[in-house]
């Protein structure tokens, strides 16, 4: 082992300790700053009850609204979510967001055309949520839905 001068030794120890101080302060700082980023979107609640399955007419998407309480930081807010529920056979249901995937306007089901229409930039979606025409980059967001006791519940978001 090469003999180290006192000066070099002290310099290295000092530099190491400065690094230690930096780490002791820095790591918690980063953890502290990124902490809220860990909370992913999601529903914020376990299940959103929508009502009886019998209310959804076969073959026609029906709008359901539900209010959920979402806690962000120390503030709790009430948010209203809306879903188009659609069933072909009265047994299997799909739930779609009514938010246009283009710029977030609310889409509307137009009975006669059998299509969803977005008033902002004339986007049109098919009955199953896929893009028929217009600027949207992808189909309407889908939610997981479950039927219990003839009641509909939104239980999560379907990841694309």
């Amino acid at each position: 082992m090469a003999k180290m001068s006192r000066r070099t030794f002290l310099s290295r120890v000092t530099t190491t300790m400065v690094g230690g101080i930096g780490a002791l302060m820095g790591i918690p700082t980063v953890a502290y700053l990124v902490s809220p980023a860990k909370a992913r979107g999601g529903l914020g609640v376990d299940a959103i009850p929508l009502g009886p399955a019998a209310k959804v007419p076969v073959g026609e998407p029906t709008l359901f609204k539900a209010a959920i309480e979402r806690k962000t930081g120390w503030v709790t807010q009430t948010e209203e979510l809306a879903f188009y529920i659609f069933t072909e056979d009265g047994r299997n249901f799909t739930a779609m967001s009514n938010v246009c995937t283009h710029l977030g306007c609310r889409v509307r089901w137009v009975d006669g055309d059998e299509q969803f229409f977005c008033p902002c930039h004339a986007a049109v979606f098919n009955k199953n949520g896929t893009v028929a025409s217009g600027p949207p980059p992808r189909a309407l967001d889908q939610y997981e839905i479950s039927v219990e006791d003839e009641q509909l519940f939104i239980v999560g978001k379907v990841e694309a």
Binding site: P28, T29, A31, Y32, V34, S35, P36, K38, G73, W74, V75
Partner: peptide
Amino acid sequence: QDAYSSVSFITNEITAGWLI
């Protein structure tokens, strides 16, 4: 309205908030 809640949030919910 918020001071106490936000301090409590820092202490109890934010990672390393108690440490900071």
